[in-house]
Structures are given as structure tokens and as C-alpha cells.
Amino acid sequence: MKLFVDTGRVEEVRKAAEWGILDGVTTNPSLIAQAGRGFKETVLEICSILPHGSISAEVVGTTVEDILREGREIASWSPNIVVKVPMTPAGIAATRQLTREGIRVNMTLVFSPTQALLAAKAGATYISVFVGRVDDVSSEGMRTIEDAVQLVANYGFDSEVLVASIRHPMHVVEAARLGAHIATMPFKVFEQLFQHPLTDIGLKRFLDDWNKAGLRIFE
């Protein structure tokens, strides 16, 4: 499963990239606004930090014409950009056209299996299914992931299911169990994937024993 960080903060992307396991970055208008920098400059700097990764940048237009115009512009900035398009009738129509032009699309704000099916039919490269927000309305976000993964597999769609709105590490574990292709998460959740109290205890014990024995690697 590919791991993405969901952020508009360049410093978080740089830190995650240093670990050597980051496959991509997802942004959205809210995350970019919170970062307090220009949209294009932020996206291009992220692209430069992860030149071989997949960087999702979102349109804000709501008509087919505006989505196409903005999508073409954003895609022209760097070859590793994937254009994020909202799950609406206009978004579906625009996605179909963008994919015909060779522009990769990340269809966002997907909350149901039927929406995932439409995104796959339209040729979306990524289908961003939101688990946390579905859970918030007393439904089962992971059931939607399961259904989306199955329908993509059943019909051989080229789309990949991207698990979004991740709130904690168990969302990542459950997504992996279900065979989701990608998980994108806030930087703090990415950090939590490393953490376990027994790791900390074990490392401290090893180092204490080593130091007490006066051992060295380099003589």
C-alpha cells in the first residue's frame, strides 16, 4: 500500500520525505489556505521535494468549463501533479475529458460505493474515499472502502482506491487489510505509525546494557 501525507505545509512534506517511505502528497483548498502561502508556489515546492511522488492539487471551479480550465493549468506545472476534482456531475464529466487528454485525476469527496463506481467509470486515477467523515455521521467508512476495492477489482478498472480522512493508525491498518491501494493521512498520524511503547522500552534497555558493558562499535 502506498503512503501519502495529507498536508499543505511544505515542512511536513520535507520531514516525511526524509524517512524514504513517502509515495505522495495530497492537498486541498483548506490545507493550502491554512499553510498561509500561495497555491502554485506551495504545490511546486512540494513537487520539488518529492519529484518521483504523486502530488494532488485541487481545482476550485464547479462547472465543467472551469474545472477543465483549472485542471489543465494545474497539470501543466509539473509532470507529477494529479488534479483533484470533486465528485459532482460536472466533476465526472470533466474527469472523463481530462483523462482523455492524458491528465491524471484524483476524484475527491467520495462517500459511497455508487460514487466510487462513477469515478472509476470516468477514468479517475485515484478515488479518494473519506472514512473519518463517514464515521462522523454514524456510518461505516471502512465498509465503503471494502466495497470500492471490490468493485474496482471486479471490473478491472485502472483506478486506485485512496483512503482519505484518516484519523488514527488503525484506519491505516484496516485499509491495508482490505487491500486499499493508498492511504493518505495527516502528518501527526504518519508519525504515530512509528510509535509503540514496547519499542521505546526495548531500545532503552538495549542501550543501557550496552553502555554499562562499555562496548563500542568503532575501536
Rank of each mutant, 00 (worst) to 15 (best):
M1G: 13
L3M: 09
V5G: 06
D6F: 05
E12I: 14
V13Y: 07
V13G: 11
W19D: 06
W19Y: 03
L22H: 00
N28R: 02
L31T: 13
I32G: 05
G36V: 11
G36A: 09
R37Q: 14
G38A: 10
K40V: 13
T42A: 08
E45L: 05
I46Y: 01
S48H: 02
I49E: 00
I49L: 06
S54E: 05
I55H: 00
E58P: 02
V59A: 00
T62K: 06
V64H: 03
V64M: 00
I67T: 00
I67M: 01
E70L: 01
E70K: 04
G71T: 05
G71N: 02
A75E: 04
A75K: 12
S76M: 10
S76Y: 13
V85T: 03
P86W: 01
P86D: 01
P86C: 03
A93N: 11
A93S: 12
A94P: 06
R96W: 01
R100H: 06
M107I: 04
T108L: 04
V110H: 04
F111Y: 14
P113F: 05
L117T: 05
Y126G: 10
I127F: 04
I127A: 07
D136K: 13
V137Y: 12
S139D: 12
E140C: 03
R143P: 06
R143A: 03
T144K: 00
A148P: 04
L151R: 09
G156D: 10
S159A: 14
L162S: 09
A164R: 06
S165A: 13
P169W: 02
P169G: 05
M170N: 06
E174N: 11
A175G: 12
A176Y: 09
L178T: 10
I182Y: 10
I182W: 06
T184P: 07
M185Y: 01
P186A: 04
P186M: 12
F187K: 05
K188S: 15
K188M: 10
F190Q: 07
E191K: 06
E191Y: 02
Q192E: 08
P197Y: 12
P197E: 14
D200Q: 15
I201F: 07
R205P: 03
L207F: 15
D209P: 09
W210L: 12
K212R: 15
